[in-house]
Design a protein around this nucleic acid. Structure first.
Length: 921
DNA sequence: GAGTTTGAAACT
DNA sequence: CAGTTTCAAACTC
């Protein structure tokens, strides 16, 4: 057996893996990236084809809802490639060990019974066959129990439990059929392991990224031979440096078979880095398996210590290093704690980013085997980290206590320590770091860290977690120039959970990554929307198995898959979105691990930003009127802010004690720490029951109320009629019927998105943006009102609190910039209004543009701050409110004066220029 | 809460 | 691109 350390990459097989949320952005430029540098090989190409060519439903997104099945399923069903997991096997024919049989025999239910091919791939006949249980891979034939199809050398198979594997055979020359082994024993007698035929040597990453030569299996294979998973042969086990590829031996589940866990790291620029296991092998994610688990001995993932991935040159090398501590170390320090807005259920609160890190699940440190077996639900957290380089989305899948379990049990022996995952990313030099510590300690491994982690380096220390870059979900709202350059990195570890939560859509990831790497974002850069397209990372803390099973049929492991989202029994979908306070629009999405809900709120950042943008103006206006009540409100707001800060501090402290973690997330440097399963992010982040939330609201309506719950009944929430969908959000707590706008229907949702984009490439772009930052927001398309006079919320402009412009095609518009002062009555009548509008439109726009030049947010903010400071001062000295009011007004007057003077000067200058230009013309 | 109005989205 | 239909939110009662 070749037990070599392989460098391999992999994606998870297991559903446990959090699926990268697919952002609309991902789909925005669906094909743009084909041929991109890194993704070439891919199977994805085919996928693309499939999608584009076959996506029959593109134009008719009326999906018949057959709910339960939608995702899993039947062969032949068009499944987005993204879900597929590719498996790369190591090469030479490792044979299947006899052990396989034994393994399969495991009394416990084998987790993988059948493998089915989901995608419609073009069947290609390949000589090599790989058998998984009853399924043959890489061959055209299908065996009982499973079906397989091959595409070029890629085969996608889906296990009964929902995992999808891709197998690509890249080395034709060496087909050792013999190698192919049958997997004996399948769950029901079927398969327990997958042996890679010699022929299969490469793993194909979703978009066709070929990973290093030796075989990879991209699958989350459970380490254990035993029932649980699929073991790939030829893949070295990790443990102890000596890898043992063959699981076969395995008879003992606990021992050898290891784990096949693989990780793929993808850099922001789209490069895929394999994890080199050569050194001390590291098993990431070793995870205990499934249900059976209990019975199953704990698997021991062997894991290890810390794995440090450093990127040198273009490649990132993953090395393992001993990780003694449980605590997260501080990563490069974050200096200023950044505030973020956490949104949950429509409410937003400010929290310090520290909390985010801390929130992550804390590693229990020790868990027993039994626990491992227990299907604990792992929590899934999605976090989008702000960074100079871009927004990173991180999804953390944490297992709850149990999680660590399996691994911990085995590995923890010496150091129960925590695993740490440190993600350092410093795109533009700005150090952004994320550290995640996971639970169980890694044991073996001796390695060395790959150097300091300079920018662009990713340091992953962890045995239990996986980080997977998510496609950047840029909020639809804004697309920012990617140029910003996020260094994306992706690390994924495989896990074997059967109870996987979901599958990753690699292709999407790839696409997106490619996007990023190429910086080809076509989207308008002018958009002030907060979210830039940035790499996302998914961090999966795995340690245990996800639980959700309770509600799901054995066959489907998807969590939260309940078809009926509204079903009472179904887990509530709860996602928290954290938005950095820094104003960069970064959002963090955190899911409550406990509930394992899938709904994720993506946040219509545009909306948020707009809100914020207007908030200042609104405040200003309020101040203008400066009545005592309003001042009071200001005070309340200030107090609220303070409370929030205090709370943040407290949280940080508390967390710090718990975990010993120190890093605070800051805007510049991001830290993401996953402490372990203990405390779900959700808990920490969840908006304070009352006070804070209210306070925040007071803060200017930071979107606390932004979330509207749709009530769609016929569109399945997959058309732009649905606000949630249109905003790029998943429905959450909505009252819609037959909603498909959730993770349970990703395929449909994606189709719908594509469909929308086909019709209108800008469908998900914000309708209201400011041409330039600081400019007044404008409706990009203009409204088309006819009967409302643009004075009702039917009017998009009015609703957004912006005046109609010449772009609008409205009739009888009364939504003028100076509306408050205008005698609207005089404009009554369509004609009059139209004339007036026509006449004034241009002027209006001119004025807008001009005023936008000077009345920037900064200016407004500064003005407001000055006024507030006056209030504060007066408060301090207990001066009469009247005086305060007067002074505030004076302050405003002074500020305006200065602005006017400045503007005037500029205006004069520009006029000169203009006249000059005209003269020349 | 039911019914109406409205305008964007979808469709032809 | 224009006209029509569909849809869900806004609005009214």
């Amino acid at each position: 057996m070749t037990s070599n350390r392989l460098s391999y990459t992999s994606e998870f097989l297991d559903d446990n893996t959090p699926l990268p949320e697919l952002s609309f952005e991902d789909l925005m430029e669906p094909t743009a990236e084909k041929g991109g540098q890194h993704m070439d090989n891919d199977a994805r190409g085919s996928d693309d084809n499939v999608v584009e060519g076959e996506d029959d439903s593109l134009n008719t997104p009326q999906f018949k809802k057959t709910v339960p099945e939608k995702r899993n399923h039947t062969p032949g069903v068009t499944v987005l490639k993204s879900h597929a997991i590719k498996v790369v096997t190591a090469g030479s024919g490792s044979t299947v060990a006899s052990g396989s049989a034994t393994t399969s025999l495991n009394p416990n239910k084998p987790q993988i019974t059948d493998v089915k091919i989901l995608n419609k791939l073009k069947p290609i006949v390949t000589s090599n066959t790989l058998k998984i249980g009853s399924t043959t891979i890489a061959s055209t034939s299908s065996t009982a129990g499973g079906t397989s199809k091959t595409l070029s050398s890629m085969t996608q198979i889906k296990t009964p439990d929902g995992r999808v594997l891709f197998v690509q055979k890249s080395i034709p020359g060496t087909p050792s059929t013999s190698a192919k082994t049958l997997v004996t024993g399948s769950p029901t007698g079927s398969i327990r392991r997958i042996v890679a035929p010699t022929g299969i040597q490469k793993a194909v990453l979703s978009k066709g990224v070929a990973v290093a030569g030796t075989g990879l299996v991209k699958a989350a294979v459970p380490g254990r031979l035993s029932n649980s998973g699929i073991t790939l042969k030829g893949i070295t086990s990790v443990a102890g440096g000596s890898a043992k590829p063959s699981p076969s031996s395995t008879a003992s589940p606990s021992t050898t078979g290891q784990p096949a866990k693989f990780q793929v790291v993808r850099t922001a620029d789209g490069k895929i880095i394999k994890i080199n296991q050569s050194g001390p092998s590291v098993v990431l994610n070793a995870k205990p398996q499934t249900t059976v688990a209990a019975a199953a001995p704990s698997v021991k993932p062997t894991t290890t210590g810390n794995v440090v991935v450093s990127k040198s040159g273009s490649q990132v090398v993953l090395k393992t290093t001993p990780a003694p501590k449980q605590v997260l170390t501080a990563s490069p320090t974050p200096t200023t704690p950044s505030k973020m807005v956490v949104q949950s259920g429509g409410k937003q609160i400010l929290v310090s980013s520290k909390n985010i890190i801390k929130l992550s699940p804390k590693s229990p440190g020790t868990s027993t085997a039994s626990s491992a077996g227990s299907p604990s639900v792992s929590g899934l957290h999605a976090i989008q980290l702000p960074g100079k380089g871009g927004v990173q989305y991180v999804r953390v899948l944490s297992n709850k206590g149990a999680t660590a379990g399996a691994t911990a049990a085995t590995t923890s022996k010496s150091t129960p320590g925590g695993q740490k995952i440190t993600l350092l990313r410093s795109p533009a030099g700005a150090a952004s770091t994320s550290t995640i510590s996971a639970s169980p300690a890694a044991t073996s491994v001796a390695g060395s860290k790959a150097g300091p982690s300079p920018a662009n380096k990713i340091v992953v220390k962890s045995a239990g977690g996986s980080i997977v870059p998510l496609p950047s979900v840029q909020t639809f709202v804004s697309k920012r120039a990617l140029s910003a350059t996020p260094n994306a990195t992706k690390v994924s570890t495989t896990e074997v959970n059967q109870d996987s939560i979901r599958k990753h859509r690699l292709t999407d990831l790839n696409t997106q990554l490619k996007h990023i790497s190429t910086g080809s974002d076509a989207n308008d850069t002018s958009d002030t929307g907060p979210d830039a397209k940035k790499p996302r990372y998914v961090i999966t803390m795995q340690q245990g198995k996800p639980q959700l099973q309770t509600t799901t049929p054995s066959g489907s492991n998807l969590v939260g898959r309940s078809p009926d989202k509204e079903s009472p029994s179904a887990p509530k979908k709860i996602y928290n979105v954290i938005k950095s306070a820094g104003g960069n629009g970064v959002k963090y999405m955190i899911r409550n691990p406990q509930t394992m809900t899938h709904a994720m709120r993506r946040g219509y950042t545009g909306y948020m930003d707009n809100k914020m943008r207007t908030s200042l103006a609104a405040t200003k206006q309020r101040l203008n009127q400066a009545n005592p009540q309003q001042k009071k409100q200001l005070q309340v707001q200030a107090q609220a802010k303070q409370r929030i800060r205090q709370q943040q501090l407290q949280n940080q402290q508390a967390k710090g004690q718990d975990s010993g973690s120190q890093g605070l997330p800051t805007q510049g440097s991001q830290y993401l720490k996953v402490l372990g399963p203990t405390k779900p992010l959700y808990d920490t982040l969840k908006p304070p029951a009352t006070g804070t939330g209210a306070a925040i609201d007071a803060l200017g309506g930071l979107g606390a109320s932004r979330r509207k719950h749709c009530n769609c009944s016929k569109s399945q929430c997959l058309k732009l009629y649905c606000d949630c969908f249109a905003n790029g959000e998943f429905c959450q707590n909505c009252t819609c019927k037959d909603c498909f706008n959730n993770l349970d229907y990703e395929v449909e949702r994606e189709r719908a998105i594509r469909s929308c984009l086909d019709r209108n490439p800008s469908a998900f772009k914000p309708k209201i943006t400011a041409p330039n930052s600081g400019d007044m927001r404008l409706h990009n398309k203009g409204c088309n009102c006819k009967r409302s006079g643009c004075l009702k919320n039917y009017c998009e402009c009015y609703e957004a609190k912006i005046p109609c412009t010449s772009i609008c095609k409205c009739v009888g518009c009364r939504n003028m910039e100076d509306r408050p002062d205008v005698d609207m009555d005089s404009l009554d009548g369509v004609v009059g209004a139209q004339q007036s509008k026509a006449k004034g439109a241009k002027d209006k726009k001119k004025i807008e543009n001009r005023s936008n030049l000077y009345l920037t947010n900064d200016v407004i903010e500064a003005t407001i701050m000055c006024m507030i400071s006056r209030i504060v001062m007066h408060e301090k000295h207990s001066l009469p409110i009247e005086d305060t009011e007067r002074e505030v007004m004076e302050e405003l007057g002074e500020s305006l004066n200065q602005i006017i003077l400045y503007a005037k000067g500029k205006h004069d200058t520009s006029q000169l220029d203009d006249s000059k230009a005209t003269a020349e013309a």
